[in-house]
Design a protein around this nucleic acid. Structure first.
Lengths: 123, 123
DNA sequence: CAATTAAACTTGCAAAATGCAAGTTTAATT
DNA sequence: AATTAAACTTGCATTTTGCAAGTTTAATTG
């Protein structure tokens, strides 16, 4: 039996917000998406080097899950996988932007990083 | 020493997206915000009755944490706390909307619920 | 082409978060 | 005063995460 666009986390409800949180509602998934969307990162080791310090097993788990749900794909060899966002993944851009706007308004994030983010995100 | 707008989860980085995920990047917080913002729920038992089935200890934990970080407050008696969003909490509305739009586009959410959500969220 | 390198991935175990069931506490109501 | 029910707690099993140290395997190099 071929498995298709698999439900990785059993849905908790039919609410669109709940469904989306079932996909990316953890502390790491959106940061990987951010790396792909804004920071030009595309490989395992690049994700691993992000300032937040994801650990290898979690990173691997998330790359697998994000691939399974169809938010990212990869090309390249097994030795050097190059990840990229699918159309579905790119459609998370408005989410990332609104999240960033909120963070910019309320966090005490350091100014140089903020400038960098603003520039990259057209905020 | 008076504690102020406390950092509930130690920040992982100064990235605005990361900071926001440190506040609401779990499977339940945004659903409580959703209940307040769109579903007219304001009390412990109303949140508890949501379709996703949050358990009592987690609900209590999140209400405390969301209050601590300044996203919600409450009025009313200890016996019947009535929660509401702060200005900061209301500023999550664009996040909820973009999350909902994404969910509507990609989830197989049931149509009647979608209509309900669209109406309430002006999508 | 054998040895080396390093990117991708795994494993084992401790710590933390979550889920679930059954409590307890305490203001209101009767 | 007794009852009710909303808010909250506790204990314990399960799951997820964090961390450190691996292993695997293509590509590089000497």
């Amino acid at each position: 039996m071929k498995k298709q666009a698999k439900e990785v986390v059993g849905k908790r409800s039919e609410c669109p917000i709940s469904c989306t949180m079932d996909l990316v509602g953890d502390k790491w998934s959106l940061l990987i998406i951010r790396d792909l969307l804004y920071l030009g990162k595309t490989t395992y080791n690049e994700f691993l080097s992000s300032r937040e310090g994801i650990s290898t097993n979690i990173l691997n788990d998330r790359l697998v899950k994000l691939t399974e749900v169809g938010l990212i794909t990869y090309t390249g060899t097994a030795k050097r996988k190059v990840y990229e966002l699918t159309k579905m993944g790119q459609d998370l851009k408005p989410v990332l932007e609104s999240v960033a706007r909120f963070g910019l308004k309320y966090s005490t994030a350091d100014k140089t990083f903020i400038q960098h983010v603003k520039k990259r995100m057209d905020l």
